[in-house]
């Protein structure tokens, strides 16, 4: 059997038997990326909403900055975070290097511009009208803000899911700050790099399939949100 086919059949075996090594890596990936995206959402959605409601002219600089950071290469983010949190760096005393916590920080930095930026774009297209409608109906500041977010929920879910898709598939940042330590900071992408290097194609393909499956689920969700947005948009 050619290596790819062999890899795929072996991969299915590993997945279906819930191979513990595989499961632990998948679980850690979801934990790290999920937490990072959750935190990015908490910061990014209010930030994006705030910026989206400002006149575009007054947020030109920060918009450009956000768009640039949306394309920030993960290895660059990883390098910067590494230098900051290395023992010689300003936050070295925290001793966070080579832990899941710092991987979350790195992925937070990667996901935040995407979630904030896409939220901003979504709010900018319709947010002003929503805000004014809520205000004229007598809503206070908080209810108005909540209404704007709620009305843009499909686009915002889309932003969150896009952020998740980006961080769960990135390898550069987690490799650099996490160190790919077995059982501790090894996630799907770094494990694929490692296992490929060792010639363990079955495991690499298996991890690749799980990653693909997760990407598929994420994109199905994204698709649903976009469809949902279309159906009930007025």
């Amino acid at each position: 059997m050619p290596p790819l086919l062999e890899g795929i059949s072996e991969a299915f075996y590993l997945i279906l038997t819930f191979d513990p090594y595989l499961m632990r890596i998948v679980f850690l990936s979801l934990q790290v990326s999920g937490t990072a995206v959750l935190l990015s959402t908490l910061v990014g959605v209010p930030l994006g909403t705030f910026l989206g409601l400002k006149p575009a002219g007054r947020t030109r600089l920060i918009s450009k900055l956000l768009y640039t950071l949306m394309g920030l290469p993960p290895v660059v983010a990883g390098l910067v975070i590494y230098l900051l949190f290395s023992r010689m760096g300003p936050f070295g005393v925290l001793g966070l290097l080579w832990t899941p916590a710092i991987m979350i920080i790195a992925q937070f930095v990667l996901a935040l511009p995407i979630i904030a930026g896409l939220t901003m774009i979504a709010i900018r297209s319709r947010g002003k009208t929503i805000q004014e409608t809520a205000l004229t109906l007598g809503a206070g500041k908080l209810l108005t803000a909540w209404t704007v977010v709620r009305e843009s929920r499909f686009a915002i879910f889309g932003a969150i899911v896009t952020g998740l898709g980006r961080v769960i598939a990135e390898v550069g940042a987690v490799m650099m700050v996490g160190g790919n330590i077995a059982g501790r900071t090894r996630v799907m992408t770094t494990a694929i790099v490692l296992e490929t290097g060792k010639g363990n194609f079955e495991l690499a393909v298996g991890l690749g399939l799980v990653l693909l499956l997760i990407a598929f689920i994420i994109n199905s969700l994204l698709y649903r949100f976009q469809e949902g947005g279309k159906n009930s948009a007025w």
Partner: peptide
Amino acid sequence: CLMLAFLILSGCAQAPAP
């Protein structure tokens, strides 16, 4: 969300340790 985040975060820091 914050509470969830803390739960997951603390889980992260401890779960994989032997």
